[in-house]
């Protein structure tokens, strides 16, 4: 590998000794991942502790009560678990409704923005681009309040699920736009010309050529928009008014002290995330392997 000259230039280093910088880096990685995962592990473990303040040090026995709730022999609820927490369940419903709305808003907006930026070469393109990505770079709370007061001032629309949808859609559409732009830049424009030349109408070009090409990106954009919407707190908190989502409800519950039910929700989130991440990784590796084979 190395040339003789380079070997001479390099400080002599016996081959079999340990490379301390490598060891240090590996130890560092280990500590970093411990830092990332230890708090999450603690959160997960405490969900199974019978102690009604979430803890792992003060262990009062294994229980699933926080996931299921518990009723005594007479049928009275003794321990309130996840299914009995109506506001969490309703919050999840609100979150899903908002996420669905955000997908419906942000995919057409993102796609339109991407088409304008990639296909319409005007002198204003850079300005347009800056404007269209600015929601990503704006603090979430500013986006939340400005949307909330704007719709109330001009359309008498009270803060709620709809304003939250709009506020989230504003910046999630920018993420979708960036994904669509990346895809559109790889498109062979000649295909659309070929279709036109063969007599296709502009609708048919869009439906048979452009849309199928964009389909994978539409799918990933929908997933990303869904996740971003479900997870969002800062923007939602300022735009939701008297209503609530799963995440803002977790937030308001945390203000009043800790409850193991939140740990239970945490466990559900962790399980979902880990499963999805593992599936995603495996799918990606399979695709890479297929590409390498082709």
């Amino acid at each position: 590998m190395t040339t003789a000259t380079a070997d001479r230039l390099r400080p002599a280093r016996p081959r079999l000794t340990v490379d301390w910088s490598d060891v240090a880096l590996n130890v560092y990685i280990g500590v970093f991942f411990l830092y990332l995962f230890l708090p999450l592990l603690i959160m997960v473990l405490a969900a199974f502790n019978a102690n009604d303040t979430p803890s792992v040090t003060d262990w009062r026995g294994f229980t699933l009560d926080w996931f299921t709730g518990r009723t005594d022999a007479a049928g009275n609820l003794v321990v309130k678990g996840l299914p009995q927490e109506d506001r969490f369940i309703q919050g999840l419903g609100h979150s899903l409704a908002i996420a669905a709305g955000v997908i419906v808003i942000s995919i057409p907006l993102g796609l339109s923005g991407a088409l304008v930026l990639t296909r319409l070469e005007t002198r204003a393109t850079t300005l347009l681009y800056t404007l269209l990505v600015s929601p990503i770079l704006t603090p979430g709370i500013v986006l939340g309040v400005s949307t909330m007061i704007f719709w109330r001032d001009y359309f008498a629309l009270e803060a709620g699920l709809l304003t939250t949808m709009i506020a989230q859609g504003t910046f999630i559409a920018s993420y979708c736009m960036l994904m669509f732009m990346a895809r559109l830049q790889r498109q062979d424009r000649v295909l659309e010309e070929a279709a036109l030349d063969l007599g296709a109408s502009s609708f048919m070009v869009f439906r048979r050529i452009t849309l199928p090409f964009l389909m994978p990106t539409i799918a990933t954009s929908a997933v990303i928009a869904f996740l971003q919407s479900i997870e969002n707190y800062n923007t939602t908190f300022f735009a939701i008014g008297g209503s609530w989502t799963l995440v803002t409800e977790i937030g308001s519950r945390m203000r009043f002290g800790l409850s193991p039910v939140i740990n239970a929700i945490g466990v559900v989130f962790v399980v979902f995330t880990v499963t999805a991440a593992v599936i995603w990784t495996l799918a990606r590796r399979r695709e890479l392997a297929r590409k390498a084979a082709a």
Binding site: D188, V190, L191, E193, A194, A195, P212
Partner: peptide
Amino acid sequence: TALIFQNLALFPL
């Protein structure tokens, strides 16, 4: 008219 493009422009999907 029908055009045969330099890179053929066959629809890959």
